[in-house]
Write a protein that binds this DNA or RNA. Sequence first.
RNA 1: GUGCCCAUAGCACAAUGGCAGUGCACCGGGUUGUGGUCCCGGCUACGAGAGUUCGAUCCUCUCUGGGCACCCCA
Length: 470
Amino acid sequence: MAIKKIEPIVEVQPAEEKKTTELVLVTKKVKTPQLLRGFHDVLGEDQIYWDAIHRKVRELAYAYSFDRIELPILEPVELFVRSVGKQTDIVEKEMFQFQDQSGANVVMRPEATASTARAYIEHGMVDRPQPVKMFYDGPMFRYDRPQAGRYRQFHQFGFEAFGSDEAIIDAQLILIAERFFRELGIPVAVQVNSIGTTETRAEYKVELATYYRQHRNVICEDCKRRLTRNPMRVLDCKEDGCRAVSVNAPQIIDWLDEPSKEHFMRVLEYLDEVEVHYQLAPHLVRGLDYYTRTVFEIVPEVADDKSTADSSTADELGKAGISGGQSALGGGGRYDGLVELLGGRPTPACGFAVGIERTVSALKGRQIKPEGSKHRDVFLAQLGDVARRKGLALFEAFRAEGIPVAEAFGKSALKAQLELADKYQTKYTLILGQKEVLEGTIIVRDMESGVQETVDMNKVIGIIKKKLTE
RNA sequence: GUGCCCAUAGCACAAUGGCAGUGCACCGGGUUGUGGUCCCGGCUACGAGAGUUCGAUCCUCUCUGGGCACCCCA
């Protein structure tokens, strides 16, 4: 932590304590600059979760042949206005937007699909074997009101495939997303829907709004507002009145054009083939303008023991589960019009993104603790200046041999070093003291049995190597 | 952006209109060089500012931050 107080220079004498009270008041407070709203640090103890996620991402990318693409955080405003959509919340009010020194209008990316499409066009990837498959991973920025699982800077990774309109691409992407969570140990449900083309969707919305207006007196206040802005949200409402009305509401499926309908059926068939369980979600509509046809969302599978309604630790558990709004762990879909929208040759594409913070939260909520990196097999303890110097070199020698060794060169008491060795759950602690240095030996302590042996310093690496492979 | 709830040490909690405690963590000690248990000691806090009051951590207001709902999304 930063220094909060500066001690007064003059020490207070006990005898004249009262007289010098004012001196104490002189004490200055330095304000520590704090985290910006909605921003957060990810500390060491959380890295095991992040590492596990990144490992899985790379593993899947390799398995399914997606190449990593590193994209800039700053992009021209136009990119998102044209792709995500001018009317969307993201563009309307959530972008970190400013002018740079040259006066250019730039934004900190709120998502990365548009950037991927931009890169696809800009680097002439049309001339590569299609589909071009890429994945990204990094921070995104949205000026939103923070909540659990919702930050202004958050992290996403995403998989995108350009250049194929085959339904099997959609299915495989859904499969990858689902596998990601399942293999991390998070039970998830896949919700899929097809929203057809922009035109058919618009027609459907009108039809839906008309339907609900006929039942205006039954639906809740919130939903009345939703009617004008986003009628598809009403389908999602939990109020009894609204639910009753929604039962007979028109279904988007019936409004799809033939090719879209056929495409959707095929996606589902492929999913059946690989036994990815999905739920049809007629109300599912993704917020970004560029989506067409297939859309899907990954949500945590709700554990159905209602008894576990403990409000005290509901923090983590609640985040992982029930609440509707922020519960989506990831989502995606097809965006056949995006590349053309950005000025490229018409190119069908499909992809998804996953929220890393939400995934971490789901892991914690499920009490899943990935393998920690804190464990070391060997600890090197040193006593005294000479031993410390020798120890430094010995540590390097071990590292050169590829044997991870923990140390505490910053400490001098042996007791404190052994305590640390214990925290590292080491199998062996090497103790190097004054005496050992003079003799050219070192003590090897078996941490479990407490048995110690003194060995030749020059042979210790070989001895430890042998012990570890036993 | 709207409404509501919250704010005590690194973390988790407690109490109080006038002494702010506990647990974990951290640092040190229990004889000079031996851990996982135990014992002792130490460190660290009332988010910021203004007001009411003889006096405020506690009451009021503003700000900042967190959380929930709406909105929307990851």
